[in-house]
Amino acid sequence: MHPANFAIFGYGRPDPTKFANDVKGMKEMAKVIDHYLKGKHWISGESFSLGDIFVGCYMLSAFQLVFDAGFRKAMPNLTSWFERFCQEPTIIKRFGHIKSCKKAMKAGAAGPPGNAKPTPKKEEAKPVAAVDDDLDLFGDDNEEDAAAAKAVGEKAKAAKDKKKKVVIAQSLVLFEVKPLDDTTNLDDLAKRILGIKMDGLYWKTEYKKEPVAFGIFKLIIGVTVEDDKVSVDAL
């Protein structure tokens, strides 16, 4: 996946200039392949090949997130190739019916849903690697998640300081756990998270799974903490 797509899902530090450059780079790549595909049915000519699978999978997220109708029109060869790709029975079997986006998404647009409307009592957590002993599940993402976790921690701390006068301040924290790929068993992970016990820490008994993209689900899990007893940083 192209870096711009990670930004749309809220990974990394928000950087509008970098995002704009990434999107530009993605569109430059589209121009290259559009030019190459002129007069061709598939990448290697008449028959569907491994090349179509690799480039197609790369372009999947680009068409779903960034290449809007206007841009697709400007890339006629690429767009018609991609439409053929989406009609292939094996592609439908693996990904279902792929829909291209109407409008290009912006950085963070597919990130945590609650982020747009923060309420005073609620603290929304960004993608966070939930617990230390689960870090292995996130593979290469460790650094990013750790950075996000740090940012959330600071945010939570600031919010907590404001509430110091309340007798028993409680915060509702929502954790969103995004796995690296679709092979992580979220139910098992949820059980392990719910297994963490601390004084003043009350997990919600329910958690939900929401689709992110390409068969990957994120885990949303809620917890109530008594601010004086438990620091979100500790989680």
Binding site: V32, I33, I43, S44, G45, S47, F48, S49, L50, G51, I53, F54, V55, C57, Y58
Partner: peptide, 20 residues
């Protein structure tokens, strides 16, 4: 036919795999 019919097709396929 996933890797093309001839060595040239194969090379072009590899080219795009490396590009993506």
């Amino acid at each position: 036919g996933l890797l093309g019919k001839n060595p040239f097709d194969h090379a072009k396929i590899n080219e795009w795999i490396a590009w993506s």
